[in-house]
Design a binder for these strands. Structure first.
Length: 490
RNA sequence: GGUCGGAUGGCCGAGUGGCUAGGCACGGGUCUGCAAAACCCUCUACAGCGGUUCGAAUCCGCUUCCGACCUCCA
């Protein structure tokens, strides 16, 4: 029993987090399909679940964090007659499929790295677990919940739903799914193979020209999308583990099907808690290629996109994401990002101020209360916006101590330092981004600052202003503070 | 069409039957040769119309508008 509460999408309520086998915690998060550069939206899940990961570690749990890489089997759609996203891209660029997967996996890792996201304990690839997936499919067939047609295997949603509840996670009713199927815009090929249009592929037959294919009991082919997560989570975390995370857009059909596959294997609902984060929107709409409102991570960090007024740093993006609760949509705008950038700087500056202030004999700060409010916030379904609001309350306190407006005792200062840094750096995973300047540049700058100060003392303001202005045009800002002049490089 | 979720001050974004969200911007101030930066203080909003209640932004109903999902999706 912990103080942490988590909203479970499956039960649709906020529950106390109790691990199956404390102190161990198993987490499975759906990772990306590596067929393109990550975009802004791809950053949210990793950041959200990184806080979960970090906080559970902070609480002393031994966390096994599994995040998969989907490098095969994710169909563009059935109409492509079995061509998957990776293979399609590969043909286009005349590269090995694995070359594509590796390339985009690397770019994904680069994003995670720059955003200071802890590495996963295990990062399994779907293509490396074909055997496990085949075994699982065989088990589902022998339990009577899947059938083979012409070299492909489909999950029999209808027969499954007679015994189990298909649609519970995503709030769907099987009768509606069946009744509503196919009456709308989408007409999919290959549907005639299926007993029911809601049946989903576990294994797809591959044509001769298909470059990613494996031998199986049903001939050459490749696995369907949903089975990889079931097979890999089972392999590394067991039939039942603690938390399964992902984006809300994966609720149906992906997670719904994962549950069905696990239960159809004679197992049970795989995850004790299902956590889903919401989407990042642009002008209130989800980022989508068709809307042409996508911003890639590279563009975001370089500012090279018409939607961007400037470049934003990885930490600014991380902080922007953390300033909203993970279950709400988060709308992108330049004004919002710039607000986050300034707020983040204030938050990080306070961690340095914390080491410059001195304790007093008497104390006027209720540190315990401030810390308690931070824990209350994160325990409440990872409410990072409230946590950050409380941290800003600490910032004001810290700055007021530094300004001599209020006093803090020795013990209280120690507690404040320890907890402030723990929340900002260890739990939220923020970090200072300032480049460490070389000794030579630093020495040069101190020389210039000294010369300028001498000019100022002689009231030779034309010289002092010239130094300041010329440095400014080079992107170096001088800041005259109480304790002398400092500088920042842009 | 079906299912679900929203509408909060200039912007972003929490929360919730009575008690300060927070950040950014604006305004005032400290510092300063000037400026910038930094810091302090200030700023009281909950789509519309009804209803329940001693009291509602928070509960209920209706209306308007917006979004997500419905086998590409983080």
């Amino acid at each position: 029993m912990t103080a942490l509460k988590i909203y479970d999408t499956y039960k649709r309520e906020t529950l106390s987090f109790e691990p199956h086998k404390a102190p161990f915690v198993g987490i499975y998060v759906c990772g990306p399909t590596v067929y393109g550069f990550p975009h802004l939206g791809h950053a949210r899940g990793p950041v959200v679940f990184d806080v979960l990961h970090r906080y559970l570690r902070h609480l002393g749990f031994k966390v096994r964090f599994v995040r998969n890489i989907t490098d095969v089997g994710h169909l563009v759609n059935d109409a492509d007659a079995g061509e998957d996203k990776i293979a399609k891209k590969a043909k286009l660029e005349q590269l090995e499929p694995m070359e594509i997967a590796q390339f985009y996996t690397d770019s994904y890792h680069q994003m995670l790295n720059s955003m200071n996201v802890l590495p996963a304990s295990i990062e399994p690839r779907a293509s490396g677990h074909i055997i496990e997936q085949i075994e699982m499919i065989q088990e589902i067939i022998s339990n009577g919940f899947a059938y083979e047609v012409n070299g492909s295997v489909y999950f029999d949603v209808l027969s499954y739903s007679k015994q189990h509840d298909y649609g519970k996670l995503s709030g769907r009713i099987i009768e509606d799914l069946i009744a509503g199927a196919g009456n709308d815009a989408r007409v999919l090929e290959g549907q005639d193979e299926k007993r029911n249009s809601n049946d989903f592929a576990l294994w797809k037959k591959a044509g001769e020209e298909h470059i990613m294919q494996w031998n199986s009991p049903w001939g050459k082919g490749f696995p369907g999308w949903h089975i990889e997560c079931s097979a890999m989570s089972k392999k590394y975390l067991g039939e039942t583990f603690d938390i399964h995370g992902g984006g809300m857009d994966l609720l149906f059909p992906h997670h719904e099907s994962e549950i069905a596959q696990s239960i159809a294997c004679g197992g049970q609902q795989p995850a004790k808690y299902w956590m889903h984060h919401n989407m990042i929107t642009v002008n209130g709409q989800k980022m989508a290629k068709s809307l042409n409102n996508g911003i890639s991570i590279d563009e975001f960090f370089s500012g090279n996109n018409v939607l961007l007024e400037k470049a934003y740093s990885p930490m600014t993006l991380k902080f922007f994401i953390l300033q909203a609760h993970y279950r709400g949509t988060l709308d992108f705008s330049n004004a919002a990002l710039q607000a986050s950038e300034k707020g983040l700087n204030r938050l990080l500056a306070a961690s340095e101020t914390l080491y410059k202030i001195n304790p007093s004999a008497n104390n006027e700060v209720d540190v315990d209360k401030l810390v308690e409010k931070c824990y209350d916030a994160i325990n409440e379904d990872l409410n990072t916006p409230i946590l950050i609001a409380n941290l800003f309350e600490m910032v004001t306190t810290i700055n007021n101590i530094a300004a001599g407006n209020i006093k803090i005792g020795t013990n209280e200062l120690e507690i404040l330092r320890k907890n402030y840094n723990s929340f900002v750096f260890d739990i939220l995973g923020l970090k200072l981004e300032q480049e460490v300047n070389s000794d030579k540049i630093d020495g040069l700058m101190h020389m210039l600052i000294k010369m300028r100060n001498e000019a100022k003392i002689q009231k030779n303001y034309s010289v002092s202003d010239q130094i300041r202005n010329e440095l400014s045009s080079l992107g170096i800002e001088l800041k005259d503070g109480k304790d002398g002049t400092s500088y920042t490089l842009n």
